[in-house]
Design a protein around this nucleic acid. Structure first.
Ligand SMILES: [Mn+2]
Ligand SMILES: [Mn+2]
Ligand SMILES: [Zn+2]
Ligand SMILES: [Zn+2]
Lengths: 150, 150
DNA sequence: CCCTTTTTGAAAAATATTTTCAGTAACATC
DNA sequence: GATGTTACTGAAAATATTTTTCAAAAAGGG
């Protein structure tokens, strides 16, 4: 289904500023920042404002028409690092993080991607989110409090 | 090797502000933002400034004493999304990105992590970096231009 | 058309990060 | 232990990024 239809069918209005942003993103072959989107979309709709780009990205993201990619330096949290190559899994509730080593399980994936895409895999960003043991227990007893709310 | 030694052996000075930041990070069990680090480290060294936190994080990162974790909403680039769950690989040279589907290869890893850490894996962030076919070719012929430079 | 509601862009506010710079402190050398 | 060099520091300002506010404009159903 065309993006404009998706907007319309979900109760969003199809406006000129949005059409400009849609066209830019539909043609994108690399991750574009809001500023980059603005610059390109202004060629189609000169009065476009950066705010509208942000707002439209929120909408497109919610409708799963775009996906976002983290840029290299966009780091917002720091952890002590165990020597060597590791990744982290962070608890979605309490934010406690633990590292885990090793990429053996990923090598197969990397080789497959190289065959499928023709890219050479040089680096990767892998980070898991989940529930730590403690928070899993809390979640398990969550049903009970419902009785109290009645 | 202790962190202070690593600093010293790499020509960095061991200062009171840095020691405060080190202590905070060494004890961290979740990813801390520069502001969070500042707040905690000021209990040890009240005159500490946020700038020093940023600068010390750069140093610790370069020495691989800390690792950084991306936070949920820290998205800085957007791409059109193919329907369904995908990941992207981005060319380190030209930034061209392509998607790839599927997590079959990751399921084994996830189950292993769950056993090893006790965490339940709910979500994940996987993004690859590499060289696209075109940039691989350019890289291959890179040696030649050296002759011209002589 | 008309009406209601959403959407828009400017401006301001709120956040986040980097640069500048003069004063301070680390530490190698004596 | 004093000294000199140089790295390091924090305040302030600059820059960059994202969100909020608000009055005007536009979408689209009736
Ligand atoms: Mn890895
Ligand atoms: Mn996946
Ligand atoms: Zn938890
Ligand atoms: Zn490329």
């Amino acid at each position: 289904m065309a993006w404009e239809e998706v907007l319309a069918q979900n109760g969003y209005r199809v406006t000129a500023p949005r059409r400009a942003i849609l066209l830019v993103l539909q043609g994108a072959t690399q991750p574009l920042t809001p500023e980059e989107i603005l610059a390109q979309a202004r060629q189609l709709h000169p009065s476009l404002g950066l705010v509208t780009v942000y707002r439209t990205l929120d909408v497109l993201n919610a409708l799963e028409l775009v996906r976002c990619a983290h840029r290299d330096r966009a780091c917002h949290g720091f952890l002590p690092a165990t020597q060597g190559h590791h990744h982290v899994i962070i608890c979605q509730k309490c934010h406690r993080a633990v590292e885990f080593p090793g990429d053996e399980d990923l090598e197969g994936l990397f080789r497959r991607i190289e065959e499928q895409t023709g890219y050479r895999v040089c680096d990767h960003l892998l980070q898991l989110a989940g529930l730590c043991p403690a928070c899993q227990k809390e979640e398990a007893i969550e049903p009970y409090p419902l009785e109290e709310k009645i």
